[in-house]
Structures are given as C-alpha cells and as structure tokens.
Design a protein around this nucleic acid. Sequence first.
DNA 1: TTGTATGCGTTATCAG
DNA 2: CTGATAACGCATACAA
Lengths: 344, 344
Amino acid sequence: MATIRDVSKKAGVSVATVSRVVNSTQWVAPETRARVIDAMDALGYQPNSYAKALATNRSDILGMVVGDLSGPFFGDLMGRVELEARQQHRHVLITSGGLNREEELDAVDFLLRRQVDALILHVDSMTDADLHALARRTETPIVLINRFVPELKDQCIHVNNELGGRKAVDYLLAQGHTDIACITGPLYKSDSRARLHGYRQALEGAGLTFSESMVVEADYMEPGGSDAMARLLDRGYPITAVACGNDLMAYGAIRLLKDRGFSVPGDIAVTGYDDIVMSGYFEPGLTTIHVPVGDMGTQAAQLAVALAEKRVPEVQHQFNPDLIIRDSVQPLDTSGHKKKIHSL
Amino acid sequence: MATIRDVSKKAGVSVATVSRVVNSTQWVAPETRARVIDAMDALGYQPNSYAKALATNRSDILGMVVGDLSGPFFGDLMGRVELEARQQHRHVLITSGGLNREEELDAVDFLLRRQVDALILHVDSMTDADLHALARRTETPIVLINRFVPELKDQCIHVNNELGGRKAVDYLLAQGHTDIACITGPLYKSDSRARLHGYRQALEGAGLTFSESMVVEADYMEPGGSDAMARLLDRGYPITAVACGNDLMAYGAIRLLKDRGFSVPGDIAVTGYDDIVMSGYFEPGLTTIHVPVGDMGTQAAQLAVALAEKRVPEVQHQFNPDLIIRDSVQPLDTSGHKKKIHSL
DNA sequence: TTGTATGCGTTATCAG
DNA sequence: CTGATAACGCATACAA
C-alpha cells in the first residue's frame, strides 16, 4: 500500500502538499497539483481511512440500530438510509437491537465504542428516559426514527400516528360502519396510544361514543391479533368493522374471522396499519395506512450528517401517513340480512 | 475522552502495561492489573478505535454488499450476518449495490477504500470475471453468498440450485403431473441455469422427454412471470403444472392464470422457489423451495472473520434447499373432466 | 513483570 | 504557495 509519503517523494513535494490536493483544502499551484495527481495514480494511492480518522477524529461512519433486521419494513428504511449516506460519502454501520431493552442498550454501546459520527436509532424498547440519558451522556449526535421524545424533538423523524388512526376509522365511517372495534398494540408504546387516540377522535368526530368494550390490547403480532379478535367476538357486542394497530394483527384477526365462518369484508371489514409489502398480496388485499418509511430514512440520514457536521439541519421532522384502499373493507350492507355476529 | 496515557498516569504504570491489561496479551501482576482496572473505570476509559485500527491495521469491520436492501429476503440474510458478526465482536458496514454491474463495482470500491477486514458479497450483476479480478486485485478476503465461482470455491457459500429445481419437479411428478412447464429466470445467471437443469433432470429421471417448447425465460419479476405464463399458454400445448424459477414469478403466473379463468391449483399447479415470507400469506399458499438464507448468512460471517484472521475456516459451503408444501399444487385430476387448456 | 521508545498514515499549525 | 513537524492514541519490539 502506497502511503502519502511515497506520493510526496515521487512528486518531489512535501506530504502537506499531497494532503492539500487530496482534500482540496488550500490552493496548490496547478503544475505541482498535476505532478501530485500523476504520482498518485501511478502508485494507486488510497488514503488510509484509519489514519485519517485518527487525525481528524471522525470516521464518516453513521451507526444505526434497528429493532429487528429481518422485520418487514426495515429493508425499505435501511435501503434509503444507506443510499442517502452513500450520496453524502458516508458509510453505515448496522446493528440489530433484538427485541428487549438490554439488547438495544448493548447495541448502542457497541456503536458508541466504535466512535461513529452519529447514531440513527429505530428502537422500540428503550424508554424515553433511556434515550434522554443517552443523549446527555454522549457527545455523539442522535437521530430517532419513528418516535417522538419531547425533550429531543429536533432529533426525531416521526409519523403522525394519531392522524393515521383517524384516517382508517374515518374511512370505515364513510363506508357506513358504526360498530367499529379496535385492536391496539401494547399501550405502553406511545405509537399504540396515538393510533388508539386517532380511533377515538374519529368516532367522536362522527358523534359516536367511544367505548372501552370495543377495544382490546394485543402485541403487534399475528397470533396476538387472532386472540384479540376472539376476545372481541366473545364479548358479544355487535361489530361490523375492526381497525387494527398494524398489518400483522390484521392478518391474525382476518384469519380467525375466516375460521369462525365470517367473510371479510362481507361480514366484517378490517383495516391494518403500516402497509407492509405482504399486504398487497394478502387475500383479501388489506386496506391499511401507509407509512412513508423510505422517506423517513432519507431524512434521518440527512439529519444525522448535518448534526455530525454541526450544521443547522433543514429536514422534515413529521410525516403524514396515507390511507391505502384495497379489498378488506366494503360499504356496510344495510339490507338487513346481515349475519348477527354475536349469536355465534 | 480519557486516553490510555491518562489511565497510565492515574494507575502509576506505563501505557504499555495498560495496553496489556486491556488486550490481555501478556501476563500482568494481579495487583497492578487491579490498579489499572480501577483507574480505567474511574476515568470511564474507552480505547480509541481509530488509533487501534491504525496501529494494528485492522478495524474489526466486515463490509457487506447486497443487491437490494429492500428486497424480500435480504433482511433475514443481514440479520444473521450481523448477529454472527456481533458475537465475534465485529461490526458490519453495509452497502447496497443497486441492480447493475457498475453500481455493484462502485459499492465494492467504496468498501475497499474503507479498508474493511473482509468483504461479504451478495451480488447478481458482477460477472465471474469481475469477481475473479477483484480477488486478485486486493488482499482483502472475499466471501461470496449464493454464488459459485469455481476459481473461488473456498470462498463461496452457496445453495444446490439443481437439487432445488429437481425437488420441485419431483413433487409435481409425484402428484401425477406430466405436462409440466417451466418459467426460468434470466439464463445468463448461473442459478437460473442450475434450476432449469434440475427441472430437466427430474423430467428425464421420470422417463419423460425435455422439450424447449415447455420452457420460457423471464426476469425473476412478477410482471415477467405473468408475461411468461401468457406466452406459455399461447403456445397451445397442454399444461397441468408450472415450475417457476422464483416466488415472484409464480405470483405473476398465478395472477395471469386467474385472470384467464383458470383455478390454481384446480386446473393448473404452480411451484415457486425461494420461499420468501409473502408466500405463506399468498392465496393459495405457495408450494415452493426453501433456501436457508439465514444459515448461509451465519456461515458467511464466520468464513469472513476466519479469513480475516488468516485461520483455516471450518464452514459449510453448500446448503441444500427444501421443499415447502402448501396449497398451490394438487394431485392431477385424472377423472377426465379436466379443462382442456389449449382450447382457450 | 514492567517501562521506553518508535511507528502507524494523516491532518493541521506555523514558518518561510 | 509550500515545507517541516507536532499531534492523534495505541501497539509492540526491545530493554531493564
């Protein structure tokens, strides 16, 4: 490996001059510059990234931790983060946090020890307090994806979950449904609460009363969605539609509904949330809320490098989700021959 | 940030001693060792990774390039690569290659300039010659996933695609089908050719004759699968089953079949290849060939660090795919009232 | 068992 | 516009 010194000798200049032409950080006379460039590609010179990092105290590496790499939409997220990073001549070091708080904390430490220039976090289990503590413990800039922590609001790239919840239920209402149940994610998570709140707002906005008996809490997983749906049915209240906190739970709910002999959307309409790829292939095509994860990834990467360079960032912090209409919702059939679901 | 020098002063020893206890590379007297450790966590000492990398000429970073981060099964792959890397105290720097050769080459260069300890490549478009040239151009160890290049065979983690193709068709044969068509991926790719070869072997193994007129080449994409299916039908030969080169093309084929009024698997059986997550949700559930991408990721990571440490690696190079039976194949109905498909 | 001194390849500060 | 040289923080050969 040729070093900067080799180049300087070959070009008959000092290492400082070589450094200057490499980084174009100062003016260099055209002819010496040319000599240096010739020497560089004669030797196939590549600057040593370790030495550079040591001298400048920055590595051009962004650290990223995500809850679960093999999950359904992290691909989109990371793909876009990486793309943006590359365009800004940065690299991304990836770590999967696993599911629990300890693993997420470990992942963060792992990256911090590595002295990344900035941290992009997509974490579920770390608490707001953890995040807050982390932010004041380290100098490293931190960007939070899909999360809103008030004290760190300038570092958050998040989505309006309340609006998303509302959009789904508004659509159900527009189709004539009024007996609308809700399957939420774990309510200790703020996004679950926000989506539920959107559900309630939509209901009340339509002059209906919100009732605890129509909502059940689950775990964002498919079997959990089935269980929740079963509990809902067993309560015996009439239901013509169910708004689910994410797509996976919607799959579970639909599966159980089919098992019990209901048709979806014929007897009961179901909506999801997230619009993961599978939802377009699911039968029936799932009507759901699309979250622009890709765009959020791009913004997160931009914010991260801006922060790393101590620039004032110009980024979009909040994104709006969109309703994706497919086949799992039908206008309410008011002709009267509707199956009375609580009689099963 | 406390440096090794700060620690040495506080503990009243030399920097060399501190280095020795940090890396446990030599014996240190228990009491001095204790003093050093106390000093370390009194100061919250963290070794500087850049300096360490510069001095040792290794970064403990594995570089990885994948064709498309947001694709369906890269999540599983990367998740496992990252997990294994972390367990071996390595990090992974990820780059997505995009779809064409130039981007893949760029991605590799990007990582090479970074001086990663090893490279894990999951690339489609780079040619065998590119890979071969790359291997002799750089000192950096290279591991190839899902690819077999004879000259680099000890660095390949691949799957037996011929066997996979054979398993799918053997199953179709066992269900009584004999008029079996095949939709392949681009035949310039060796895995497409291998799967096709498996198809042919199975046919001939059953005493049937292979015919060009029953195979059509497509592009591994869903619309391509539809087009290919249409071409196949338009040729007018009788067909009761179709073996597709991947799941996406199977989706496309099934969609077209449904559009033309056929039932799957009632009229025509379809198999896929890859077993991406969606296939379990697809309607009908897709019978397909499962490729153990996760396990391959683990092996690739192990191989990469072994190579980086100049150890003789003990890894499994070839993996066998498995048949996953779901609902898109039915035993051939020989009762005679079968729809004559070429009459449409 | 421990300490000293040098090198790793750059950047950046100061002179010239 | 260019050159000399001191950091940067750690590992390691060589001494003690």
